[in-house]
Amino acid sequence: MEVLPLISGICCILGGIGVILHTNPINKIIMFALLEVGMIGLIVSSYYLDIAIISSLCEPICTIILLLGYLKYITTIKKKKKYGRDLPVLSK
């Protein structure tokens, strides 16, 4: 039994359970990063090295897109409370 597939499998299982159980969005994204760690380890343990390089290059891009969406979401929630009943943008 090798060490790398074992650790990667445990990381995948724990990350998958954590994405379901945690409720805060940032906690969900951190657990998703843990899932990606396990996935790259499993790819490397089958010797697909080129795919491992490409997926580790794409991983921060996916995370940044998710985080931009989260920032936009909380900004929208904060701004919606400031406007009154008649929005100037929507009422035109």
């Binding site: 940032i26 994204i29 951190i30 990063a33 760690v37 580790s56 290059l57 991983e59 921060p60 995370t63 940044i64 985080l67």
Partner: peptide, 9 residues
């Protein structure tokens, strides 16, 4: 790349 991701979080 994982360091970049931690920086963004």
């Amino acid at each position: 790349c994982s360091t970049l991701s931690s920086n963004a979080i």
